[in-house]
Amino acid sequence: MTTTLADGVSTREVREPGRRWLPHWAAGYLFLSPWFLGFFGLTLAPALVSLYLSFTEFDLLRDPRWIGLGNYTRLATNDPKFVAAMRVTFTYVLFAVPLKLIFALSVAMLLNKGVRGLSIYRALFYLPSLLGASVAIAVLWRQLFAGDGLVNQIVLAVFGVQGPAWIADPEYSLYTLVILSIWQFGSPMIIFLAGLRQIPQDVYEAAEMDGVSRRRVFLRITLPLLSPVIFFNAVVQTIDAFKAFTPAFIISDATGGPVNSTLFYTLYLYQEAFAYFRMGYASALAWVLVVIVAIFTVFSFLTSRYWVHYDE
């Protein structure tokens, strides 16, 4: 049996090997079979089921009971904890992401000037990004920002005053987590550094010949040429920040306290699902998160055309 392979090699009229007993496209499905199982069994079907569950009351013991928009109306009108979780999460995103990116860009620009020992600095700055997601670092943060922790010891030694109680103080607790996020600026920094390397050097040389000030070089050359990378980092970091969980869980003993000040959205979702077994309500929370992330993504792609410059 002689057939022509689709695309790619079609121009060559390839003779198929003799012992072929399957159509030529079967190989593709065979190679994809684990992914098919995963995609339908672990992603698509569960996503649809969770959409269904979000319209029900479900505690694992009894069958789900249809309550229409009940969960969503409760979310929108009668759930102070949901409001707290939204406020905490948005505050976190609003502070952590820009500060982390500013840090990452500043250090990347310092490193891009041809510093000796670049690879050592790069590795040192990257290390916290790699370790940061673990429970151990959250444990460390708990001690650092305890009332009698290392930070307050330093504050006392340097300024001679007793610092605030940080994680035990609802005014500050969230910001200790923002600091933890900034501490992990290493991976966006590496991406910025790779982006800075792509900017042709002669653009800078030309600007210098014309005596353009540093500020203008930064605003008119570096930022625009780097904007695709800034955009990428901003989107990835924001989505990641919406999903933050472990540090808040460890630092607040799974409560999101004090006074809900570290009640990240995902922590609240976890509590609803696995502490109170309100699976229907938690599913509604999950879908609200999807909608938020989707709106954010669409919004950033729509606005990107006004500030992100791609090469022709």
């Binding site: 569960p46 969770s50 999903k243 992330v293």
Partner: peptide, 19 residues
């Protein structure tokens, strides 16, 4: 579809997977 799953927060599949 595969690329689409990159954007999907895992929380959406979490509960049915658990069940």
């Amino acid at each position: 579809l595969m690329l689409g799953t990159l954007m999907l927060p895992y929380h959406v599949t979490l509960i049915p997977q658990y069940v």
